[in-house]
Structures are given as structure tokens and as C-alpha cells.
Computed example of a mutant assay.
Amino acid sequence: MKAANICQFIRDIYQTDQFIPLHAPTFAGNEKLYVADTIDSTFVSSVGKYVDEFENKIEHYTGAAKAVAVVNGTAALHTALYMAGVKRGDFVITQALTFVATCNAIHHMGAEPIFVDVSPVSLGLCPKAMDEFLFQYAQVSEYGCIHKLSGRVIKAVVPMHTFGHPVELDELMLVCQKWNIALVEDAAESLGSFYKGQHTGTFGDFGAISFNGNKVITTGGGGVVLCKTAELGAQTKHITTTAKVLHPYEFSHDEAGFNYRMPNLNAALGCGQMEVLTDYITQKRKLANHYRDFFMLSDYQFFVEPKYAKSNYWLNAIVCPSVEDRDELLKITNITGIVTRPIWKLMHHLPMYKNAIRGSLNYSEHFESLLLNLPSSPSKKLINL
């Protein structure tokens, strides 16, 4: 299949000869109304009705016991790691095939990442690879899971639901239980994705979702911590609001907290976006079906959702026949005004994480070389195709 044919197919889908972004925000609901209401109220910062309303909408949609809205996805993951008990000097297992924010959150806790391979089924952290790494390099003691060579604690694992495709959570939770490791889900990309009927980010005690401008829905910036219980939710809310003790006028704080509160202005935008989320997911899954059918008889492999999952298809992905084919398609699409992107560089290829401990990364390296993301914005034009 020629790159020119792929370009024309994408233009036919979006019915335009103009610039086509990778994933643009769509505003089709009451966003302007709610944002204007926030401005009129003057409560544009961290106090206002829309923060509570947005959190309630997220809880209702995901099934989380408590959702705590924060300033961005990295803050959400940082908070989740803090609440999960990660300490300075700990190790946290994650995947090398991820966006850098996953590792940055670990780094800012004073912890260090350990990289294990991803699964070809999900593009996310592989439970088998994790178990094999731990069998070789770790042991369980009264202090938790210990890295044998250094004596340091392996405190948590952070799988990322890559492009919205849920990881193999049943198997991963069994490995976590076996090795006494906390599960913290990086669900930044997976709002609207379900594993066997349960929303991602709700399997461990904590999960983190992003509402950056390029996500399924956006609050401009923003993120949310999903909490397993109401009690954990209350503690998480407390730590993200500078650990301020409630009082009519005194300023009293009982620990070193974070000032991570989502502004009411952003939450208002999110409330409008939540009202059209189901429609957006329908559009995105329809788009994924068009891509799947188009590439079915080609030498490009469209990456489909795992059989156990219903994915939001945040970013559609194809695995190219060769590095040369990938590079040619990247070049031609971007020159002609269609944004495509390679997957992220593996984390140990970045200077700050080059010395991180890692297992075999064969699948990660395979996808780094061959995978490419296609335009994935939801569009009502897709409904009648």
C-alpha cells in the first residue's frame, strides 16, 4: 500500500483538504455556557461548584468511589504514588514504552523506575515479563518486595493503558499480590476504556487520568485521581489541597501537602465535555473501525483492542512493515498537512533514565521502530460514513 493512498483515505474520512491534526479537542456541548457562568460568578480558582460537579460526573462514569480533580495528569499520578506509599529510594516498575510523564512522576517522588516489557496484546505492561523479572531479581520479605542486588524496596507498579487499550489487569493483579507490590494505574489516556466491563483506573487503590488538550475530553489542563474507597478519597483530597485543616478563618496545615487543586474554570469546561463523552467515544470507535477495515488487506497492521476490553481508541495506531515504510509515511503525511507521529522514544533512550534497571524489552523495541499514530479526533462527520 502506498503512502499516497493512506493520505487520501484519511482525507476522505475527515472530508477536508485542510490541515488534519493528530487529536484536536472538540467542543459540542455546554462548555461555553458553563465557563461563562464561572466567570460571572468570579469563582474561577480552586473554589466553586463546578469542581464538585466534575468530580461527581467522573465518579458516576468510572464507578470510582471518589475522584479528586487536580491541575494535570502528572500531578494526578504523582499524588497517586504518594498515596500508595512510594518513598524516596524506592523502585517502581513501569514500562519503557510510555510517555515521559509516567517516569517523571516516579522521579519526582525520589524513586527510580525499573523497566519491563510490554505485551503485544495491549501495548501496555506485560504481567508475564514483570513476573519473570521479579523471579530473577527480587524476593519477598517482611519489608515488602526487595530488589536482591541493591536491597531496596520495589514498592509499586505503574502500568500505562497505552492509547486507551487496557492492560491485562487480572494477570497483573495476581503478580502484584504474589510479590506484595502496590498497583497504581496510569490511565491518563484511557477515559472511556473498560476492562471486562470495569473502567480502567479503578482496579488498584489509585489511578490517574489526564484531561490535557489532546485527550478524549479536556479541561484545558487537568487530571483526576481515582480512589478505591471514600476514605482514601478524603485523604487524597486533603493532601492535594495543601493539607489544610478546615476552619472558618485560621490557616492550619497538618502535613506537607500539594497545591494541586483544579481551578473551577477548568472544571466547568470539563462538565460540558462530560455531557458529550459517550458520543465522542462512539465516534472514535467508529473511526477505529474504518481504519481497521482499510488496513485489513494491507501489509500494515492496525492495532485493535484486546478481546477482553472495550477501548476508547484514544490514538489509532498501525504497525508498519518496516522502519523505511514508517519513515516514508511519517514524512509524506506531515508534509501534506496530515499529522502522524511515531510512538515515544523508549524511556531508557532518554538521558535521565538511561541507567535505569531493565529487563528484556524486545516488544518495546519492536513497536518503537515500527508503530505510527494516525489522526484520531472525534468528528460528527464520521457518523454517516
Score class of each variant (00 low, 15 high):
301 Q>G: 00
277 L>K: 07
157 V>R: 07
281 I>C: 09
318 I>R: 07
126 C>M: 03
159 P>C: 08
239 I>R: 03
340 T>R: 10
296 M>K: 15
11 R>H: 09
365 E>M: 13
130 M>L: 13
210 S>N: 14
18 Q>R: 09
236 T>V: 04
359 G>Q: 10
325 D>L: 02
265 L>P: 11
60 H>W: 02
86 V>C: 09
363 Y>T: 15
276 V>Q: 04
120 P>G: 04
121 V>A: 08
258 F>R: 08
361 L>F: 13
73 G>P: 00
248 P>S: 11
81 L>T: 02
281 I>S: 05
157 V>W: 00
92 V>Y: 08
65 A>Q: 06
164 G>H: 10
27 F>C: 03
152 R>K: 12
338 I>S: 02
72 N>D: 15
278 T>D: 14
271 C>E: 01
67 A>L: 11
370 L>D: 07
1 M>S: 07
330 L>D: 01
71 V>R: 10
380 K>S: 05
177 Q>L: 05
113 P>T: 05
180 N>I: 10
333 T>N: 11
129 A>Y: 10
127 P>D: 03
275 E>C: 03
362 N>W: 06
241 T>H: 14
378 P>N: 13
35 V>H: 06
6 I>W: 03
162 T>I: 12
254 D>V: 04
271 C>M: 00
233 G>S: 13
231 E>L: 15
152 R>Q: 07
260 Y>A: 06
40 D>L: 11
336 T>C: 15
213 G>E: 04
144 G>D: 06
156 A>K: 07
325 D>S: 15
336 T>R: 12
31 E>H: 05
56 N>P: 01
192 G>N: 07
54 F>R: 02
385 L>D: 03
97 L>F: 15
376 S>E: 08
34 Y>M: 11
118 V>T: 11
282 T>C: 11
43 F>S: 09
256 A>G: 07
87 K>A: 12
312 N>E: 02
76 A>I: 01
250 E>F: 15
189 E>L: 13
272 G>D: 10
259 N>K: 11
126 C>Y: 09
98 T>D: 09
362 N>R: 12
261 R>N: 08
65 A>F: 01
358 R>T: 14
94 T>N: 11
226 L>G: 04
300 Y>R: 08
299 D>R: 13
289 N>E: 15
88 R>K: 13
331 K>V: 00
40 D>V: 02
174 L>P: 00
20 I>E: 05
99 F>W: 03
264 N>D: 15
279 D>Y: 06
177 Q>H: 09
350 L>P: 08
224 V>N: 08
177 Q>D: 14
166 P>R: 12
139 Q>M: 09
201 G>M: 14
375 P>F: 08
350 L>R: 12
150 S>N: 05
349 H>W: 03
160 M>H: 15
